[in-house]
Each structure stands twice: as structure tokens, then as C-alpha cells.
Design a protein around this nucleic acid. Structure first.
Length: 321
DNA sequence: TCTCCTCGAGATCT
DNA sequence: CTCGAGGAGA
């Protein structure tokens, strides 16, 4: 068995809230500065939060914090944030600030940019110093930005500020970043409204995208060809694919079948004539190298069905005849 | 049609 | 972490 090192929380056991796609009118924006990227090895050096009620900023919270374990800020972080070793040494202790910070946030929705980063730190430190759990649901402006502007090459906070012409001066201090994120969050809400009409509309398209099958269904493939070469091996035959093709997308392969006058199927049935085998090595649910489609096809073949099981490369060879 | 699963690729936070 | 591609079962 594996022994868990003391003093930090393994990520698997964090009982965090849910990541939401939503635009509530009341929430708390958070941001922290740290000595590095790892909640396990690095320390919080500054916390900040901005409370919004009915779309109005009503309060804020900000403090540099001193983790009494004698932490050292390196030059990179001081350059990035402007927070010096002296500032930390003179700051109140994390055991003093953290309870006030958590109390300020309360059970609000938490909003932040790549907010998982901040929540993971806060979660672990709250556990370590206070034996408390942070389970607020949260909204990530990075996630929203990606959904709403998928074509942009980057979605950093600076990119968000640039996209919406927000003041990005004095960034990388916790309270400033909260304010920038707050403006960005409002701008994202406006964008969601103008792109999708209503917020519910935007949310439902998100759900559709992540849940509904992006996989190609046979009914999605159509051909506008009318005169087929009736001698080609796939004419009038029903074809089914299993696994990922190495040389093309399944969608394109199905289109070729349709254009040859063949019929595409989603699953192996008595009507299936060809099962084309792609690569299923990646699929962990398949233990013996054979997908359930292949097993069913082998069974049908044994019982005398007119069905051929062919590897991907044979499929291409048959196309070239 | 709907729900839930796995995996790999790519990006962000200090 | 999140998303897209793909699969299984009901």
C-alpha cells in the first residue's frame, strides 16, 4: 500500500464543490499569490476577495500573509508580484488571516480565473491549519472565456483583459486581479447574452456539447451522389466501424462508404456486411483486444451471416480496386 | 436517444 | 483541470 505523506491533502480526496457554468448576480471573486505552483510544496503569500451582491461590489478583503514556517520568496515571485520578503515577514500570520478570509467568502459562489488553482491552495491550507473544508461551488472565468472565444490562441487573464479592453495595470497583486476578473466576468456575461440570447440558452448549448454524442452517427452521413459504380465491393453493403482509424477520421471513412453507394450502420446487426477494425488499443474497457462489435460480428459469421471482418488497411485496398 | 466511461492533448495558475 | 473523440449499455 502507498503511504500518504503527512502535511498535505492528496488531490483525490479533496471534496471540492462543483465547477459551474453560470452567471449569478451575487458571488465572491477570489485571487491569491503564492511562492509557486504547487499547493503541496508552496505557500500562500497574499489573499484577496471582492464580494458582489446584485451585480454591485459591496466589500473587499485583502492581506499579505506570513506563513510562520520561515518561507522564502524567490526573486522570480518578487519580480512578478512586487511582494518582498520584508512585506511577508511583517504581515499577519496565516493562522490569523485564513479564518477571516474564509469567513469573508462564506458560502458564496466563488469566481476566479483558473480558480481551481486558488481553491486547491485554499482547500489544502484550510485543511492543514484549520481542519476545515472548502466546498463552495465555483465558476471559472477561464472556462467561460474558452467556451465563448474558442478560437483565441490563449485565454490567460491578460488575454481576457485585452479582449474586453480592461485596465490590466498593476496586475499580479491579488486584489487587483480580483477587480480585473470581476470586470471580465461581467463582460463574459454580456458576450454570452449577445451570442446566445439568454444565459439559459448558453448553458444548454454547453451541456449539449459536453454530453451529447459528438461521435459520428450513421444518420449524420449523407451523399449527393446518384450514379454509383455497382461493381465496387461496398455498393449496397452495410458497413460498421469499430475503434479509431489510423489514417482518417471515421466520419470521412463513412462518407466514402456513402459516396460508393454503401450503407452506414452504428452497430453490428444481421444486416451488417462489413466490420472495419480500427485501433482500439487505447480503450481500457477492452481487455482481450476485441471490441463488443467485433465479438458480435464473429458470432454472426459463425452462424452463417454474410459478414466480413476486415482490418483498416484492407478497407483501403478495397477502395483502390 | 440518453447517460456514463476512458483516454490523450493542451492550457493556466504563481 | 477541461474538452473532444470514441465506446457500451439501456
Amino acid at each position: 500500500m502507498i503511504n500518504i505523506a503527512m502535511g498535505h491533502v492528496p488531490s483525490q480526496t479533496r471534496q471540492k464543490g462543483n465547477s459551474l457554468i453560470a452567471f449569478p448576480s451575487s458571488y465572491t471573486i477570489i485571487d491569491i499569490e503564492t511562492t509557486g505552483l504547487s499547493p503541496e510544496w508552496d505557500s500562500i503569500i497574499e489573499v484577496a476577495a471582492v464580494k458582489v451582491k446584485d451585480n454591485q461590489i459591496i466589500d473587499s478583503f485583502s492581506s499579505i500573509v506570513n506563513t510562520a514556517a520561515g518561507i522564502i520568496v524567490d526573486e522570480y515571485i518578487t519580480n512578478l508580484t512586487g511582494i518582498t520578503q520584508t512585506m511577508i515577514d511583517e504581515a499577519p500570520l496565516i493562522t490569523d488571516i485564513l479564518p477571516k478570509y474564509l469567513n469573508f467568502i462564506g458560502d458564496d459562489y466563488i469566481v476566479g480565473h483558473n480558480v481551481n488553482f486558488d481553491i486547491n491552495f485554499i482547500y489544502d491550507k484550510a485543511q492543514e491549519y484549520l481542519n476545515a473544508t472548502v466546498s463552495n461551488d465555483f465558476i471559472d472565468t477561464l472556462r467561460l472565456f474558452r467556451r465563448l472565444s474558442p478560437d483565441k490562441p490563449h485565454h490567460r487573464l491578460s488575454d481576457l483583459a485585452e479582449e474586453y479592453h480592461l485596465d490590466y495595470t498593476d496586475a499580479h497583486r491579488a486584489l487587483r486581479d480580483c477587480m480585473i476578473t470581476q470586470s471580465g466576468f461581467q463582460a463574459l456575461k454580456d458576450t454570452a447574452l449577445s451570442l446566445h440570447g439568454t444565459i439559459d440558452n448558453f448553458i444548454s448549448t454547453c451541456k449539449k456539447k459536453s454530453y451529447s454524442h459528438s461521435g459520428v452517427k450513421a444518420s449524420d452521413i449523407h451523399t449527393n451522389k446518384t450514379d454509383f459504380d455497382v461493381t465496387n465491393p461496398f455498393y449496397g453493403k452495410t458497413c460498421v466501424f469499430t475503434g479509431a482509424l489510423d489514417k482518417m477520421l471515421r466520419k470521412d471513412a463513412m462518407q466514402i462508404v456513402a459516396d460508393l453507394g454503401g450503407i452506414n450502420g452504428d452497430s453490428v446487426t444481421k444486416k451488417t456486411n462489413y466490420l472495419i477494425l480500427g485501433n482500439n488499443a487505447y480503450c481500457k474497457t477492452i481487455k482481450d483486444g476485441k471490441s463488443s462489435k467485433q465479438k458480435k460480428a464473429e458470432k454472426l459469421k459463425l452462424s452463417g451471416q454474410d459478414i466480413e471482418i476486415i482490418p483498416e488497411n484492407v478497407f483501403y485496398d478495397m477502395l483502390n480496386e
